[in-house]
Write a protein that binds this DNA or RNA. Structure first.
Lengths: 146, 146
DNA sequence: ATATGTTGATATTTATAATTATCAACAATG
DNA sequence: CATTGTTGATAATTATAAATATCAACATAT
């Protein structure tokens, strides 16, 4: 098996994740409610975090604590991700998509009724997985024109 | 004379601006220090605000108060503006430009040593003038690919 | 089946961003 | 030249976002 995939395995229950990150459980739930993180859910609806999830959360934390960007600020910044370009939406899907016009939160925080996003798992999507910080978003914006 | 240009005339001293906006003078100075606004300066370094300046500040205020985006959040979001595309930088100028890679504040909050931006007045630049809110930034990101 | 951990929701506390007040030095106005 | 407004800087205050605590109901594990 590909050993890199281990880091994607959701093996940590919420308490362990909180201990490893040195934050409280309600904070983890808050970030999720705000759409900054999408942990895996078990059959019985219990959260499970992977190593990559933890890294993502540390990144979010840095934005809040060091860069002083509010949660809504992070959401607004992530809303600038040109997801339609990344996943290659059809023009129709794109124009019908809420997240194409919305600038308040990232695409994965929206309920999608049409297009690929309606069926795909956001947690597994490149758009979600690749973007948790400003620099990555800007990098992508730079590359659209090329 | 073009009557529309009147709205760009910097005719309000800081006290008047503060009264019209119902905020304090130090707040206006803060927004400027953070690079969210560039008022005109008289020969003796006194600030003067135009009607458009006031509208811009109201827009900023809405982001802070209603959208709950922190000042640093607004700056991060504005750092996503593809300014090099808008003003049509040469590839060389672009690659040498700080604001091309930086994702912490908008281009006009940087000191520019090379390119057009070194000589131009940011206050007069389309990039500064057109962008004070998220939706305009996203609109522009949408249009790059087209 | 009893311990321990989870869920979502609400209430509370804490941290800190945003705003304002105050200051001496300088500018404008009449 | 006296009045009123400005400048930047620092200190104090206020507002509120972020984090945490608490809860009953449900899940897991031994």
């Amino acid at each position: 098996m590909d050993l890199n995939k281990l880091d994607d395995k959701p093996i940590f229950p919420i308490r362990t994740a909180a201990e490893l990150l040195k934050i409280s459980i309600p904070t983890l739930r808050l970030y999720e409610k705000e759409g900054l993180i999408i942990p895996h859910k078990t059959n019985s609806n219990q959260r499970a975090y992977s190593k990559h999830d933890l890294e993502r959360i540390e990144c979010i934390r840095k934005s809040i604590k060091k860069s002083k960007i509010s949660i809504n600020g992070i959401k607004a910044m992530l809303a600038m991700i040109p997801c339609w370009q990344i996943i290659g939406c059809s023009d129709l899907d794109r124009d019908n998509c809420i997240s194409y016009s919305d600038s308040s939160k990232p695409c994965w925080a929206h309920k999608h009724d049409n297009g690929v996003c309606a069926t795909n798992e956001c947690r597994e999507c490149t758009v979600y997985k690749d973007f948790s910080e400003c620099s990555k978003v800007k990098e992508t914006i730079q590359n659209i024109g090329k």
